[in-house]
Simulated assay, not measured.
Amino acid sequence: MARFAAKTGLTAALVATTLLGLAACSDPGATAATGPGSTSSSASAASKQFNLSPEQDRIKVEVDSAAAAQVPDAIKADGKLTVVTTGGTPPLSLFASDNKTLIGSEVDIAYAVGGTLGLEVEVLPVAWADWPLGVESGKYEAVLSNVTVTEARKEKFDFATYRNDLLGFYAKSDSDISQVKEAKDVAGKRIIVGSGTNQEAILVRWDKENKKNGLEPVDFQYYDDDSASQLALQSGRADLTFGPNASAAYKAAQDGKTKQVGTVDGGWPLKAEIAFTTKKGNGLAVAARTALNKLIKDGNYGKILDRWGLSSEAIPASELNPAGLPKK
Rank of each mutant, 00 (worst) to 15 (best):
Lys327Thr: 13
Pro269Gly: 10
Val123Lys: 03
Ala23Asn: 13
Leu144Ser: 02
Asn282Cys: 05
Leu231Ala: 12
Glu106Asn: 15
Leu20Ala: 09
Thr148Met: 06
Ala253Leu: 14
Ser26Phe: 15
Ile315Gly: 05
Lys76His: 06
Tyr222Lys: 03
Leu22His: 15
Leu166Tyr: 08
Asp306Ile: 09
Lys154Cys: 02
Asp73Gly: 04
Thr197Ile: 02
Phe50Gln: 05
Leu203Pro: 00
Val126Glu: 12
Gln56Thr: 14
Leu320Phe: 04
Ala33Leu: 08
Gln56Glu: 10
Tyr301Asn: 05
Asp306Phe: 10
Ala68Gln: 03
Asp255His: 07
Leu233Phe: 02
Ser235Ile: 07
Ser41Ala: 15
Glu319Trp: 10
Pro54Glu: 10
Phe276Ser: 00
Ile191Asn: 01
Lys80Phe: 01
Gln49Asn: 14
Ala248Met: 11
Pro72Asn: 00
Trp308Met: 06
Asp226Ala: 14
Thr89Gly: 11
Ile109Met: 12
Ala16Ser: 14
Asp265Lys: 12
Lys259Ala: 01
Phe4Val: 03
Trp268Asn: 13
Ser53Cys: 13
Ala232Cys: 01
Val113Trp: 05
Asp239Ile: 10
Leu144Gln: 03
Glu313Phe: 08
Leu295Ile: 04
Ala12Glu: 13
Asn51Tyr: 01
Glu216Trp: 00
Ser318Met: 00
Gly194Asn: 06
Tyr111Gln: 04
Ala67Thr: 06
Ala317Ser: 06
Asp239Glu: 07
Gln199Val: 06
Gly21Tyr: 01
Asp219Lys: 14
Tyr111Glu: 01
Leu133Arg: 08
Pro36Ile: 14
Gln199Asn: 11
Lys211Met: 11
Thr17Pro: 13
Phe220Val: 00
Thr241Cys: 12
Asp165Lys: 04
Ile103Arg: 06
Thr101Val: 05
Ile296Met: 06
Phe169Asn: 04
Thr39His: 14
Ala6Gly: 12
Gly324Pro: 08
Ser235Tyr: 13
Ser145Thr: 13
Ala160Phe: 03
Ile75Pro: 05
Lys211Cys: 08
Thr277His: 06
Ile304Val: 04
Lys294Trp: 05
Ile202Glu: 05
Ala238Ile: 03
Trp268Ile: 09
Asn300Lys: 11
Lys7Ser: 02
Val286Met: 07
Arg205Ile: 10
Leu81Thr: 03
Arg163His: 12
Val180Gly: 04
Phe169Leu: 05
Ala160Gln: 04
Ala77Trp: 09
